[in-house]
């Protein structure tokens, strides 16, 4: 197993910010294992959880290069902190009347939920760290895994430590909230 680093970047929620981060990784030859983006407790700030492969990538350089992006406000490397790291996975697995109970039992062992029941398939939703999800997948494989969708890791330090940003002056915040916004569309930029 190569050492993986979990970085959290708080970024301005603006068009193109995901592109900037992705482009930086590509250009500098950093390898992304997974990247998850979503809104935060602060209006206008999105959180990216980036898992990088520490064997092929200078993690300190990644942090510094991320900081050079104007839209990146805060970067933390949680790897050596006590942290909670979770990933969500949806698995569509084949099953029939004969073996459905077995599959359900496996799900129970992994505290996974069945979120869709079809004639010959089940959709399972599992949450956990990568090891747990891999173990579940391995057990489901013999039944026939049709489709897998995973979110990539999101992580947070345990205890009082937090990755957060300071508020900015109201006038300036107003400007920053508007930058690049298309007047007729008010979709959140985390989707960009």
């Amino acid at each position: 197993m190569t050492p993986k680093h979990t970085l959290v970047a708080l970024v301005e929620d603006r068009p193109g910010v995901l592109n900037r981060v992705a482009s930086l990784f590509r250009r500098r030859g950093f390898n992304i294992h997974s990247l998850a983006v979503g809104p935060t407790e602060v209006d206008g700030i999105s959180r990216m959880t980036i898992v990088v492969d520490g064997a092929t990538t200078q993690v300190e350089q990644v942090e510094k290069q991320l900081y050079k992006l104007i839209d990146v406000v805060k970067v933390s490397d949680l790897t050596h902190d006590r942290m909670v790291a979770r990933e969500l996975m949806l698995v569509k697995v084949r099953c029939n009347n004969l073996n459905r109970a077995e599959v359900v039992q496996i799900c129970e062992l992994f505290r996974a939920d069945i979120v869709d029941v079809g004639e010959s398939t089940l959709v399972i939703q599992a949450v956990g760290d990568e090891e747990k999800l891999e173990a579940l997948l391995a057990l489901l494989k013999p039944y026939g895994v049709r489709e897998v969708a995973r979110t990539g890791r999101v992580a947070m330090a345990r205890g009082l430590t937090s990755t957060s940003v300071e508020a900015e002056p109201p006038d300036i915040h107003l400007h920053h909230m508007r930058v690049g916004r298309r007047p007729e569309r008010r979709l959140p930029y985390v989707s960009d």
Partner: peptide
């Protein structure tokens, strides 16, 4: 998009109200 890796930062101004600040 083209100049992202060769600028310190760049902007696309979508509203005249943002222009002066930008």
């Amino acid at each position: 998009g083209i100049t992202m890796p060769i600028t310190k930062h760049n902007y696309l101004v979508m509203d005249v109200d943002d222009l002066a600040y930008t």
